[in-house]
Nucleic acid binder design. Structure first.
Lengths: 138, 138
DNA sequence: ATGGGGATTCCCATCGTTGTAAGGTCAAGG
DNA sequence: CCTTGACCTTACAACGATGGGAATCCCCAT
């Protein structure tokens, strides 16, 4: 199996496969005499694992951890701990973005959006010393 | 006003002020004979505007746009349009992250988290061909 | 043998921010 | 006058993960 086939089978872009190898997330693949990378089913499984973990938003370093736990059949406590930590970070980010969206919505809702330059959004950006002013007004 | 004072007054890191200048987001500041950058109150206001826009998560290119609209007293319609586009992107990201968190929570909730290696999280990462399997099972 | 598709390596760009290194400048105090 | 420390200057690199492209090479089929 060469890198193109491994890519299709795992869902991981060929370019990314080489990158994962370069950062040591996966061991260096075998090579044909001509220098082409060769992948076994087991290696494709690992790539699929990584791909799926990326879909969950896990950062590479945590994926490195997860792959290690997986291959070494470590206690599920360890795995769960990593997952919970990631979920907490997702949650943090969600809260952040939601706050941005809501604050912005508050301003946009009061913006006429017509031909006149007067605009609560610009007023807030330009002048607000107290970031919560819009929310407080709401 | 030198860059340190402008930084404190605007909330924008001095390093970032130089960066914003380098990418043309703000015009090059005046200089003292010794080469120190000098800032007026108006320039600090612009920096504060940028700082606030960053807090709303606006990417630089959109901030460049907003600063332009602001300074040229353009119709609020333009401003609102930019804000709405950004809100839509925030929303997209929120939905993405929420889906990740929920799917992960579903798996973590069913993980014993004990000394045994058996773990729904790893099972999903390793084997799921259908990304929605966990959600469907729920 | 020729062509096309796929492989290789290497470099560059993203986006916003931070860090570091090596220097110049200013103001205060001994 | 000299030192000290805080501040400024430029320039370069790194981050995380990915995409793009160039130049070259390999394999297979016609």
């Amino acid at each position: 199996m060469n890198i193109g086939q491994a890519s299709k089978a795992s869902g991981v872009n060929a370019k990314m496969i080489r990158y994962y190898e370069s950062i040591g997330l996966i061991p260096a693949a075998g090579r044909t005499p001509a220098g082409y990378r060769v992948y076994t089913d087991a290696e494709v499984n690992t790539l699929r694992f990584i791909h799926r973990a990326r879909q969950f938003g896990f950062p590479m370093e945590r994926i490195r951890l997860l792959v290690g736990l997986w291959r070494a059949h470590q206690p599920s406590r360890e795995v769960k701990q990593v997952a919970l930590k990631h979920m907490a970070e997702l949650e943090r980010r969600i809260v952040e973005l939601t706050a941005m969206r809501d604050a912005l919505k508050e301003l946009a809702d009061h913006c006429r959006g017509d031909h006149q330059p007067e605009c609560p959004i610009l007023r807030d950006l330009a002048g607000s010393k107290t970031p919560g002013a819009a929310a407080q007004a709401a």
